[in-house]
Amino acid sequence: RKEMTAACTPRRRIINLTSVLSLQEEINEQGHEVLREMLHNHSFVGCVNPQWALAQHQTKLYLLNTTKLSEELFYQILIYDFANFGVLRLSEPAPLFDLAMLALDSPESGWTEEDGPKEGLAEYIVEFLKKKAEMLADYFSLEIDEEGNLIGLPLLIDNYVPPLEGLPIFILRLATEVNWDEEKECFESLSKECAMFYSIRKQYISEESTLSGQQSEVPGSIPNSWKWTVEHIVYKALRSHILPPKHFTEDGNILQLANLPDLYKVFERC
């Protein structure tokens, strides 16, 4: 597991931080080997919608929660590849102030007048994250320049770009939802926020969305749709870069829909 690298990086740093090793061990302890084997050997059937997909393993048909699986995938990559990410360069710098204002204007932020003026909160978020810029760049390849612009994001899987519609809320939550006081809790909560931002979430995906850094293989055609990215990038990574937690067998994120021999018997009677 320590050699797990989802995106190509030129050289690998050895990380011996106790906090990170502890988080890696927790993933191992909570892992479910049968689910790992199923995901490793599954045959992708198709997307139901951005949140759900169908896959077959041996004779069984499964309904998989793409949102939760991708979130767990990105969390584990962030923990196992800690401080070893490439950088996704933004085509132009994104001012943190503008991103924070967009987030505060969104109902998702939960902002009320009692929280104070949005401009003041946005300025605080910019200054707060600028103070964390060195650590964010060093460990997470999340790059913020001296003017308070976001200029780079971590490359977690080759050819995958997170849904940038979720970027404003991500920046807001970096400042408000991460435990910045304790090292282990900081790395864990920061990785979880980043994983949620990178995950496939239906509120940020339309039929026209593209999450891939590449064009489709047909010359002159439109960019790959999110469905292509889910199948050929995300579920491909799920084959080798995730140890599913045991609770996925109990919380409805992986559901067995049918045993195909039983279905064949039904059709034979028709």
Rank of each mutant, 00 (worst) to 15 (best):
4 M>P: 10
6 A>P: 12
6 A>H: 13
8 C>V: 11
9 T>D: 12
12 R>M: 14
12 R>N: 08
13 R>A: 11
14 I>C: 08
15 I>K: 07
15 I>S: 07
16 N>Y: 14
18 T>L: 14
19 S>D: 13
21 L>F: 05
22 S>I: 13
22 S>H: 04
23 L>G: 15
23 L>R: 13
24 Q>S: 13
24 Q>D: 13
25 E>I: 15
26 E>C: 09
26 E>K: 06
27 I>R: 09
27 I>N: 14
28 N>Q: 10
32 H>S: 05
33 E>Y: 14
34 V>I: 12
36 R>L: 14
37 E>C: 12
39 L>D: 15
40 H>I: 09
41 N>R: 10
41 N>G: 06
43 S>H: 05
45 V>E: 07
45 V>T: 11
49 N>K: 04
50 P>H: 03
51 Q>G: 07
52 W>A: 07
53 A>Q: 01
55 A>D: 00
60 K>W: 12
60 K>T: 07
66 T>V: 09
80 Y>V: 03
84 N>T: 13
86 G>L: 14
99 L>Y: 03
100 A>N: 00
102 L>P: 00
104 L>E: 00
107 P>D: 12
109 S>C: 14
109 S>A: 12
109 S>P: 15
110 G>E: 01
111 W>Q: 02
112 T>A: 09
114 E>F: 15
116 G>M: 15
116 G>Y: 15
117 P>V: 15
118 K>I: 15
121 L>Y: 02
125 I>W: 01
129 L>P: 01
129 L>M: 14
132 K>L: 01
134 E>H: 03
139 Y>W: 03
142 L>M: 09
143 E>W: 12
148 G>K: 02
150 L>R: 01
150 L>M: 12
151 I>A: 08
156 L>A: 02
160 Y>V: 02
160 Y>D: 00
160 Y>C: 01
162 P>V: 01
165 E>R: 04
167 L>C: 02
172 L>E: 01
172 L>A: 07
172 L>F: 05
173 R>H: 13
177 E>G: 03
178 V>I: 08
178 V>R: 00
183 E>H: 04
183 E>L: 04
185 E>G: 05
186 C>L: 02
186 C>M: 02
188 E>R: 04
192 K>Q: 09
194 C>K: 00
198 Y>P: 00
200 I>Q: 08
201 R>E: 14
201 R>C: 12
203 Q>P: 09
205 I>D: 07
206 S>P: 08
210 T>S: 05
211 L>W: 06
213 G>M: 08
214 Q>A: 07
214 Q>V: 10
215 Q>D: 11
215 Q>Y: 10
223 P>L: 04
225 S>K: 05
225 S>W: 13
226 W>S: 03
228 W>Y: 07
228 W>L: 10
229 T>C: 08
229 T>W: 09
229 T>D: 08
229 T>L: 10
230 V>I: 04
230 V>Q: 07
231 E>A: 14
232 H>C: 12
235 Y>E: 05
235 Y>C: 11
236 K>I: 13
236 K>R: 11
237 A>G: 10
239 R>H: 13
239 R>F: 14
240 S>C: 14
241 H>M: 11
242 I>V: 12
244 P>R: 08
249 T>V: 08
251 D>W: 15
253 N>Y: 04
253 N>I: 04
254 I>N: 06
254 I>E: 09
255 L>S: 03
256 Q>I: 11
259 N>L: 04
264 Y>M: 03
265 K>V: 12
267 F>I: 12
267 F>Q: 02
268 E>A: 09
